[in-house]
Deep mutational scan, measured.
Amino acid sequence: EIEQGFLPKGWEVRHAPNGRPFFIDHNTKTTTWEDPRLKIPAHLRG
Rank of each mutant, 00 (worst) to 15 (best):
E1M: 05
E1R: 12
E1N: 15
I2V: 07
I2M: 13
I2R: 11
I2K: 14
I2W: 08
I2E: 13
I2H: 07
I2L: 15
I2N: 14
E3P: 09
E3C: 11
E3G: 13
E3A: 09
E3Y: 12
E3T: 13
Q4V: 12
Q4Y: 13
Q4M: 06
Q4I: 07
Q4G: 12
Q4F: 15
Q4H: 10
Q4L: 13
Q4W: 08
G5A: 13
G5M: 10
G5D: 15
G5I: 09
G5P: 08
F6E: 15
F6N: 15
F6Y: 14
F6H: 14
L7G: 05
L7P: 05
L7K: 04
L7F: 05
P8A: 02
P8H: 15
K9C: 08
K9T: 09
K9Y: 07
K9L: 08
K9E: 11
K9N: 11
G10P: 01
G10M: 01
G10F: 04
G10A: 02
G10D: 02
G10H: 05
G10R: 03
W11F: 02
W11K: 06
W11T: 02
W11I: 05
W11H: 02
W11L: 03
E12Y: 03
E12V: 05
E12M: 01
E12W: 03
E12G: 01
E12K: 04
E12P: 00
V13C: 09
V13L: 11
V13Q: 11
V13H: 03
V13W: 01
V13M: 15
V13D: 01
V13I: 12
R14F: 08
R14Y: 06
R14L: 06
R14T: 04
R14H: 05
R14Q: 11
H15R: 14
H15C: 15
H15P: 05
H15M: 07
H15I: 13
H15G: 05
A16D: 13
A16E: 06
A16I: 10
A16R: 03
A16S: 12
A16M: 09
A16L: 07
P17G: 07
P17Y: 03
P17W: 06
P17H: 08
N18I: 00
N18E: 09
N18V: 01
N18Q: 00
N18L: 03
N18T: 08
N18G: 13
N18K: 03
N18A: 03
N18H: 03
N18S: 09
N18R: 02
N18P: 09
G19L: 01
G19S: 03
G19P: 03
G19N: 04
R20M: 13
R20I: 08
R20T: 09
R20A: 14
R20N: 08
R20Y: 04
P21V: 11
P21A: 13
P21D: 06
P21W: 06
P21T: 05
P21L: 11
P21Y: 15
P21I: 14
F22H: 01
F22Q: 09
F22K: 03
F22W: 06
F22T: 05
F22I: 10
F22C: 11
F22G: 03
F22S: 02
F23P: 02
F23K: 05
F23C: 00
I24G: 00
I24N: 03
I24L: 14
I24C: 06
I24V: 12
I24T: 03
I24M: 04
D25E: 07
D25F: 00
D25S: 01
D25G: 01
D25Y: 02
D25W: 01
D25I: 02
D25R: 03
D25L: 01
D25A: 01
H26Y: 02
H26G: 05
H26I: 12
H26Q: 06
H26D: 05
H26P: 09
H26F: 09
N27L: 06
N27A: 08
N27D: 11
N27Y: 04
N27H: 04
N27C: 06
N27E: 07
T28M: 05
T28G: 10
T28R: 07
T28D: 07
T28W: 00
T28H: 07
T28I: 01
K29Y: 00
K29D: 15
K29W: 08
K29E: 07
K29G: 14
K29C: 07
T30E: 10
T30V: 10
T30Y: 02
T30D: 07
T30I: 13
T30F: 05
T31K: 04
T31F: 06
T31I: 11
T31C: 13
T31Y: 05
T31V: 10
T31S: 14
T32R: 03
T32V: 05
T32P: 00
T32A: 02
T32W: 02
W33A: 07
W33M: 08
W33N: 06
W33Y: 10
W33Q: 07
W33R: 05
W33I: 12
W33P: 04
E34L: 10
E34I: 11
E34H: 10
E34K: 06
D35H: 06
D35Q: 04
D35W: 01
D35S: 03
D35I: 01
D35E: 02
D35T: 01
D35A: 09
D35M: 03
P36Y: 03
P36F: 00
P36S: 00
P36K: 01
R37M: 07
R37K: 02
R37N: 02
R37I: 02
R37W: 02
R37C: 04
R37L: 06
L38I: 13
L38R: 14
L38G: 13
L38Q: 12
L38Y: 06
L38H: 08
L38E: 12
K39G: 13
K39W: 08
K39N: 12
K39A: 12
K39L: 11
K39F: 06
K39M: 12
K39E: 15
I40K: 15
I40A: 14
I40W: 13
I40L: 13
I40S: 14
I40G: 14
P41Q: 07
P41S: 11
P41I: 14
P41A: 12
P41M: 07
P41Y: 04
P41C: 08
A42W: 07
A42K: 12
A42R: 08
A42D: 11
A42E: 14
A42I: 06
H43K: 13
H43F: 09
L44I: 13
L44R: 09
L44N: 07
L44F: 06
L44G: 15
L44M: 14
R45F: 10
R45N: 14
R45Y: 12
R45L: 10
R45C: 14
G46D: 12
